[in-house]
Amino acid sequence: YKIYPYDSLIVTNSISVKLPKDVDRTRLERHLSPEEFQEVFGMSIEEFDRLALWKRNDLKKKALLF
């Protein structure tokens, strides 16, 4: 996945969300650098992957990456 800054990946309720063209809309968190991922989620990507799907989705919603 290509890395993008968190600010360019957050999704708000506005209709005209302009995400970069090559971003996987269903896995926005994968486009964060490991350092920024840790900062946003408070855990590593590996720890995040071990969580239940509902928990990952809940965290993504709170981080505006859903």
Rank of each mutant, 00 (worst) to 15 (best):
Y1V: 15
Y1Q: 10
K2F: 07
K2M: 10
I3T: 10
I3F: 07
Y4E: 02
Y4K: 01
Y4V: 04
P5L: 04
P5F: 03
P5D: 06
Y6C: 02
Y6W: 04
D7P: 08
D7C: 15
D7I: 15
S8Q: 15
L9Y: 00
L9C: 02
I10E: 02
I10N: 04
I10P: 00
I10T: 07
N13D: 13
N13H: 10
S14G: 14
S14Y: 04
I15Y: 06
I15G: 15
I15F: 08
I15D: 15
S16V: 10
V17A: 15
V17K: 14
V17T: 14
K18P: 13
K18A: 14
K18C: 15
L19I: 08
P20T: 04
K21S: 14
D22K: 03
D22F: 05
D22M: 04
D22I: 04
D22T: 05
V23R: 02
V23Y: 02
V23H: 02
D24T: 04
D24Y: 05
R25H: 12
R25W: 08
R25N: 07
T26Q: 13
T26A: 13
T26R: 10
R27P: 01
R27W: 03
E29Y: 01
E29T: 01
H31C: 02
H31A: 02
H31E: 00
S33T: 06
S33R: 05
S33I: 05
P34K: 14
E35V: 12
E35Y: 10
E36H: 05
E36A: 07
F37N: 00
Q38C: 11
Q38S: 12
Q38D: 10
Q38H: 14
E39T: 14
V40G: 01
V40S: 03
V40P: 00
F41M: 06
F41T: 00
G42R: 12
G42H: 12
G42L: 11
G42E: 10
M43S: 03
S44N: 14
I45Y: 07
E46S: 12
E46H: 11
E47C: 08
E47V: 11
F48I: 00
D49Q: 08
D49C: 07
D49I: 04
D49M: 08
R50S: 12
R50H: 10
L51W: 02
A52T: 13
A52D: 13
A52R: 07
W54K: 10
K55Y: 11
R56Q: 14
N57L: 11
N57A: 08
D58I: 12
L59W: 03
L59F: 05
K61E: 07
K62A: 11
A63F: 07
A63W: 04
A63M: 07
L64M: 12
L64I: 04
L65W: 01
L65T: 00
L65G: 02
F66Q: 07
F66E: 07
